[in-house]
Design a protein around this nucleic acid. Structure first.
Lengths: 207, 207
DNA sequence: TGTACATCAGTGAACGCGCGTTCACTGATGTAC
DNA sequence: TGTACATCAGTGAACGCGCGTTCACTGATGTAC
């Protein structure tokens, strides 16, 4: 009854819990392949993992909790992906640009995952999610503050500026894929323009 | 078999097509009530409309087309809602502010509808949608151009500025509802800040 | 004015399907004696 | 070293449900004669 292709070998004695990770990974593959959360059924996930449906109940109380686990894992991965390219970059403007690029890049590489993280009807109550969002945002505020945005007619306010920047980033991540017939400019150009307007950072395509 | 509450009376002879509108209206109620598109099943919509499921096939080839009709109707309503408050307002900055407020207002009053219009996996191929989006955006460009954004270190570029403004508006419309645990500032303040940064418009709470 | 008839706006029963979940079970494997 | 036994990692069959869609039908109503 499991997937014909998989030919999964049963986990050895102590290693049962390993299936949990395989289930989450399978669910994430289905999510990205189909693009929609409701394709991630318990049965489809079991098939993808090469296991029968009831086997999932050894690791999750039900489908709801399985999907919550997917969200938690994905959010952690997202935050890591946005942070990773900052390693070793010192100059604030370059840090900001690198982080924003990574944000957009992740969203376009994993559109369905991004959507489940940031556009869901039922927001996840997972502490992981709230924590990760706060962490990500604090990074943004700090970097922006280091950039020392100077606007003549404007009192510096990194907190509010960071929020507006995040809002625009989300727009850039989410809107073009949802309205592909609209004549969007190049993503890179849009990001440059956005950073210029919102963080006073000159375009720099060197990175 | 129809909904107990409805007690619908059958349409008179020539007025069969009226049911089409009732079906779309019923589907939109279910969409907003549930928050998710996949709750808008053919059977649930029929129940809500006070009709049996097969009756829908007289007006739509299937569920897919029924949902497309919902999207088309909703998009037209959205564009009208954003335009309506501009009537009679002449001053460009006030026009821009009024339009943006209406945008955000619509999104928060009809979150599920906004989501289906702007965050769908499968973008609608309806010409209505592409047309309405283009129309809405052209308004934004024109108004922004009339505002005559002046930035010292910046060549005016209403087209790009309008896009960035739209991206941020979308963020403001979509992100706070999806992450309610994040400590967002007041919507109005955020919108003010956003317009100040992206359109050089001073906060004016008079309107 | 009366009646046969066509049409219109639906109904009611049925189909096959995939779903989430429950339950009793199985067979390999480590452990105790 | 051999064997009984407990445990672990699952399987297989079954349930009731709501779904999209098809099909034959019905009953009210306007129209032709």
């Amino acid at each position: 009854m499991p997937g014909k292709s998989a030919q999964r070998v049963r986990n050895p004695r102590g290693r049962g819990p390993r299936l949990r990770e395989e289930i989450v990974a399978a669910a994430r593959r289905i999510l990205e392949r189909s693009g929609v959360e409701d394709a991630v059924t318990l049965r489809a996930t079991a098939r993808e993992a090469g296991v029968t449906a009831p086997a999932i109940y050894a690791h999750f109380p039900g489908r709801t909790e399985m999907i919550e686990a997917v969200i938690g894992t994905a959010f952690a991965e997202f935050v890591a992906a946005v942070r990773e390219p900052l390693q070793g970059v010192e100059e604030p403007a370059q840090r900001l640009r690198a982080g924003c690029r990574a944000y957009i890049h992740y969203a376009h590489e994993h559109p369905a995952t991004y959507r489940i993280l940031f556009t869901r009807h039922q927001p996840s109550a997972l502490p992981v999610v709230a924590g990760a969002a706060a962490e990500f945002f604090q990074d943004l505020v700090d970097t922006l503050a280091q950039c020392g945005v100077q606007d003549d007619a404007h009192v510096p306010d990194p907190q509010s500026d960071a929020i507006v920047l995040w809002l625009a980033l989300h727009g850039l991540a989410a809107l073009p894929p949802a309205h592909p017939r609209f004549p969007w400019p190049e993503q890179e150009d849009l990001l440059d323009h956005l950073l210029e307007r919102l963080a006073d950072i000159d375009p720099d395509r060197s990175l």
